[in-house]
Design a protein around this nucleic acid. Structure first.
Lengths: 116, 116
DNA sequence: GGGAAGCGCAACCATTTGGTTGTATGATAG
DNA sequence: CTATCATACAACCAAATGGTTGCGCTTCCC
């Protein structure tokens, strides 16, 4: 467990916004899955212009979900699983809030309360 | 484990889009935390108009993250933890794609894989 | 009954998004 | 050196976002 610096609200906004598009989720899935993916290689898979895909990658990069690595004249897109894990943690925290409601109910019946 | 119907791309879009706003995440956190929250009670907590908060709640409702229950002239907003869990699963699947890349490597070096 | 609270909805506005095309630049192949 | 490929970036445009105000309807309280 490394103590990672917390994401700011604006960063969290960018992460979820980046994930709120099927094309971008598909790109993330491909690069996390290990597909060797230059931008033009990615662009060939979708029926939209190269520039459009380039913009999607830029959004993902701004959210920290992918990185670009120069390799000759190509830019290889690689996934950043840490950011995905971080987003998942955030959702986990929301779920915890919900679960915590039951521990409050439990406090009304002191004997039934389990330790944390 | 219940076999829940899969979310469509459009639904997933709505879920992540709804989460891509700090005010909406805060609303979700409050209602999941059990705060008795009518729309006007929520609106009082943010420095924006009632109608703006109403729109945020509508976005959350459209994403299935929240439900409204009529109670007299008030609408009580309640959180839907199932959708949060669903979103988390989706992120989990993306992480699995990444982890699966190592299982190939692991087959070359059996034994090095033990962590989660 | 009548006024006020709570909500929904529509109109409006500035900004952002998601796509396009076109142009410029760096790396590669011949 | 020249032509081409991969990328970057700017301008442009339609549509969606996120906020506002205003109006109308239902419900509650005196």
């Amino acid at each position: 467990m490394v103590a990672l610096p917390p994401l700011s609200d604006a960063e969290i906004d960018r992460v979820f916004h980046a994930l709120a598009d099927a094309t971008r989720r598909d790109i993330v899935a491909r690069v996390l899955g290990g597909e060797q993916a230059s931008i033009s290689a990615l662009a060939a898979r979708y029926q939209m212009s190269f520039a459009a895909v380039q913009k999607h990658v830029a959004v993902l990069e701004g959210a920290g979900l992918v990185t670009k690595q120069a390799h000759g004249r190509e830019r290889i897109v690689r996934g950043n699983p840490e950011r995905i894990a971080r987003a998942r943690e955030l959702l986990g925290q929301l779920e915890e809030l919900w679960k915590a409601r039951f521990s409050q109910l439990d406090s009304l019946f002191p004997d039934t309360r389990s330790q944390e």
